[in-house]
């Protein structure tokens, strides 16, 4: 009985295993093997020898190191920032009743928006053309700040656009996860906290405030 069940279980898993095996596991292993093959030619599938030359090459490549640095900066900035913003949005969404569904949809839209369209919008925002400096520069000009070339300009201007885009793109997914986490918190916890006398706006001075005390730990499970 047990054995039969096991077999059935594997059978159900088979499509996923095949798919993941072919497109994830096999290429992963294969790429790892290739990385040691020096002078690999993809057309003829030949190589000269085995060694660590590829690694040495890439670690001495200034472009690669720059990319590594850029990625590191991007992650350091966007991950905490997007999580904090997403959390604020989720708590906001969780607290309102009218138009809740509408706002939830609006915040999820970027997730399903075509990348090409997004690119176009960001171009309008930041790209300098013959006719305009872009919407962002237009707004900057109102405050008397000079036009900044966001696309080919200074390093931090470009980094800003990249961070802005990354945060914007990952936001819906994070909001979705956090909203469902908050929604799964039993209403009784909020009521209990109310009876226990925590105020929604009280800072952490007099013990943990309602959000820190009830919401976060309870939603952490999801």
């Amino acid at each position: 009985m047990n054995k039969e069940n096991n077999l059935k279980g594997w059978l159900y898993l088979l499509p996923a295993i095949l798919f993941l095996g072919f497109f994830m596991v096999y290429p992963l292993v294969d790429v790892f093997v290739y990385s040691f093959e020096e002078g690999y030619n993809s057309a003829s599938q030949t190589f000269f020898g085995v060694g660590l030359y590829n690694y040495s090459y890439v670690l001495h490549d200034p472009y690669f190191l720059q990319a590594l640095k850029n990625t590191f900066i991007l992650v350091i900035i966007t991950v905490p920032l997007s999580t904090i913003i997403a959390l604020l949005i989720s708590v906001g969404l969780n607290s309102i009743t009218p138009l809740k569904k509408l706002y939830q949809t609006v915040y999820f839209l970027p997730y399903v928006t075509n990348t090409l369209a997004v690119g176009l919008v960001f171009m309008i925002l930041f790209k300098k053309t013959a006719y305009t400096d872009g919407l962002a520069n237009l707004i900057l000009a109102w405050f008397g700040k000079g036009p900044i070339d966001f696309i080919d300009g200074p390093y931090w201007a470009k980094m800003f656009v990249l961070c802005f885009y990354t945060i914007w793109v990952v936001m819906p997914f994070k909001v979705l996860i956090l909203t469902s986490a908050l929604a799964s918190v039993n209403q009784d916890y909020y009521n209990a906290a109310k009876v226990d006398g925590t105020s929604p706006l009280s800072p952490a001075s007099s013990g943990p405030s309602r959000p820190t005390a009830t919401r976060w730990p309870c939603s952490a499970r999801t």
């Binding site: 039993n186 009784d188 916890y189 009521n191 209990a192 109310k194 009876v195 226990d196 006398g197 925590t198 105020s199 005390a213 009830t214 730990p217 309870c218």
Partner: peptide
């Protein structure tokens, strides 16, 4: 009056103990 100013103690069916 809101619950915190009434001086009531309430025990929920789910107990609602803070798990952390």
């Amino acid at each position: 009056l809101p619950p915190e100013n009434r001086g009531v103690g309430l025990v929920f069916q789910s107990y609602a103990l803070y798990p952390h």
